[in-house]
């Protein structure tokens, strides 16, 4: 009990001479959905990038699933995954080829069954033989999400997963994610500018402001303490 999937301490990132992440520390609970909020340029993507080892921190310490990211990166990467509409998959391969490719990279055994199952749940069977490059934004999101779930990650990082989706599809994706999280008892760390979305799926939030943590805690408690009726008011007041 009470173990953390992410433990960040004194994390700093400086690009050139500009400090983007300013000495932040926080933990993310097991079996939870945590929203990372903040205005454009607050440092959300940079933070996620550091949690995946894509961006090296200037200083500080990151522990994921009880392991140190600096020393055990490859072990950790097997257990986590990431999705963002701003990151593509190879365009010149079909969806199926892409999913097979990533299954092999993650060392998944019997991946065809796993993919079949995911593809059905995501209602994307008809996309399998299409070239990834020919898909619409919403279709790409589904495929990216499928790729992100292929290794059954214990920690799933999502960077604005529903940006550019129509309301119906975003609700579908949102519910799919919640369902997945509950069934697998994984943890999700999600950034979004859609505050309703965050309010509907996250139990915890971390609010970043100019690279510092402005608030961090249980969503409902934070709203209550500060006397806000919605996350939007909170965001406008504190963000």
């Amino acid at each position: 009990m009470n173990s953390f999937v992410v433990k960040v301490s004194n994390l700093v990132k400086t690009f050139d001479t500009k400090k983007i992440i300013k000495n932040i520390s926080f933990n993310v609970n097991e079996n939870s959905v945590t929203g990372v909020l903040g205005k454009n340029g607050a440092g959300k993507t940079t933070l996620l990038g550091m949690l995946m080892g894509l961006i090296s921190p200037s200083s500080g310490n990151i522990e994921i699933l009880g392991k140190n990211l600096f020393f055990k990166k490859n072990e950790i990467l097997k257990e986590i995954n990431f999705q963002s509409p701003y990151i593509d998959l190879p365009k010149k391969m079909t969806v199926e080829q892409n999913l097979f490719f990533y299954s092999r990279l993650y060392g998944i055994k019997k991946f065809k069954d796993i993919i079949n199952d995911l593809v059905k749940k995501l209602k994307m069977t008809d996309l399998m033989k299409k070239n990834y490059g020919s898909l619409s934004a919403g279709q790409k999101t589904k495929v990216n999400l499928c790729k992100a779930l292929i290794n059954n990650p214990k920690l799933l990082l999502l960077d604005e997963p529903t940006a550019s989706l129509d309301p119906e599809t975003s609700i579908f994706i949102r519910e799919f994610l919640l369902d997945y999280q509950k069934k697998n008892k994984s943890s999700i760390l999600i950034t979004s500018h859609n505050l309703e979305e965050i309010q509907s799926i996250c139990s915890k939030i971390i609010l970043l402001k100019l690279g510092k943590i402005a608030s961090n805690g249980n969503l409902n408690e934070l709203l209550k303490i500060n006397n806000y009726s919605s996350l939007k008011d909170f965001f406008l007041g504190q963000g």
Partner: peptide, 18 residues
């Protein structure tokens, strides 16, 4: 370069690929 052109580097570098 194909990885760069298809903006696939992020996905590639977060797999356990060494």
């Amino acid at each position: 370069l194909e990885e760069i052109w298809s903006r696939n580097l992020t996905n590639l570098f977060i797999t356990p690929l060494r």
